[in-house]
């Protein structure tokens, strides 16, 4: 395999990690709340703007930026839950789905009104250093995105499988009525699940802003669709498989581009999804819709 192809696979892995970062939140929300969401791209954007303003205030303090994006998107998650999910658990699923689409448009337009339509620079938050591993070149930000994805997958897996709180989240995701019967506050638990999904997207927004060195109101539009595609590949509700889905989408796109043109990027990703779902409708999961 020549160096060029390897560099394209590395590019694909890095892009896939960006998709994976957002897909993690999608999988958590679908897994716990039980409804699809199309607001993740805009939550990413709010996360990026939150950290942008905190970076301005704190002099590019990364920890402050991440905490701010986590907290603000958590609050947005609470509002989102109340507006788009809380009242619609007994309604057809498309009602909340359309609500999330409307909510995403609202967030995007409000961002353009309050933050302006121009791109905000997020320069030099992390030093732009390139590491050479043989013929592979990786930047410091790319390593940081990889580490963040690994940490999040680990924390979420431990949370869902190894703690009593995670059991509550899992119980709500599996059967709301039964969970209520054993004394779990279903509404509050589902809201927390939604907030976790949004806060993950918020932190992803900080990293994506740093990675692309800018924050702007429409930054989440394409990413949101790719994240949903990644989660679908992962069976919609599994955190590690959603991350795997993101990485595979990124690699597929870049290998396709290596042999053709970047203008066909979406053909490769969505083509891959369609082919995958034709042969394996449950995605990477063995059972359709199995919970996290």
């Amino acid at each position: 395999m020549d160096g060029y192809l390897i560099s394209q696979i590395v590019n694909g892995l890095c892009l896939g990690l960006i998709y994976a970062l957002i897909a993690l939140g999608v999988a958590v929300i679908i897994g716990i709340v039980g409804f699809a969401t199309f607001t993740q791209g805009e939550i990413v954007m709010i996360g990026a703007y939150s950290s942008y303003y905190v970076f301005l205030w704190s002099g590019n303090n990364l920890i402050y930026g991440m905490i701010a994006s986590f907290m603000i998107t958590w609050i947005i998650g609470m509002i989102l839950y109340k507006v788009c999910y809380a009242k619609f658990f007994d309604s057809p699923e498309y009602i909340s789905l359309i609500c999330t689409i409307g909510f995403s448009m609202l967030l995007k337009n409000l961002a353009q009104i309050f933050f302006g339509a121009e791109k905000k620079p997020m320069l030099n938050i992390i030093e732009n250093r390139i590491y050479h591993l043989g013929i592979i070149e990786v930047s410091r930000v790319q390593i940081m995105v990889l580490v963040t994805v690994l940490i999040m997958v680990t924390i979420l897996s431990i949370l869902f499988t190894g703690t009593s709180w995670g059991l509550k989240l899992k119980a709500v995701s599996q059967n709301r009525e039964a969970a209520a019967l054993v004394g779990i506050n279903v509404d509050k638990t589902a809201m927390i699940g939604n907030c976790i999904g949004c806060a993950i997207a918020g932190v992803a927004g900080t990293l994506i802003g740093i990675y692309y060195q800018s924050a702007y109101a429409t930054m989440g539009a394409t990413l949101s669709m790719k994240a949903f595609t990644s989660a679908t590949l992962g069976g919609l509700t599994s955190v590690p498989l959603a991350a795997l889905g993101g990485i595979l989408i990124g690699v597929t796109e870049n290998i396709g581009i290596a042999f053709s043109s970047a203008s066909f990027r979406d053909i490769f990703s969505f083509g891959f999804l369609i082919i995958m779902l034709i042969f394996k409708p449950t995605g990477f999961r063995r059972k359709r819709g199995a919970r996290a």
Binding site: S7, M219, A221, N254, I257, A262
Partner: peptide, 17 residues
């Protein structure tokens, strides 16, 4: 000579090429 779509955000593959 490489093209890309208007809503592209990640140009790394074109740049590598």
């Amino acid at each position: 000579d490489e093209s890309y779509t208007e809503n592209e955000t990640d140009f790394s593959s074109v740049i590598s090429k």
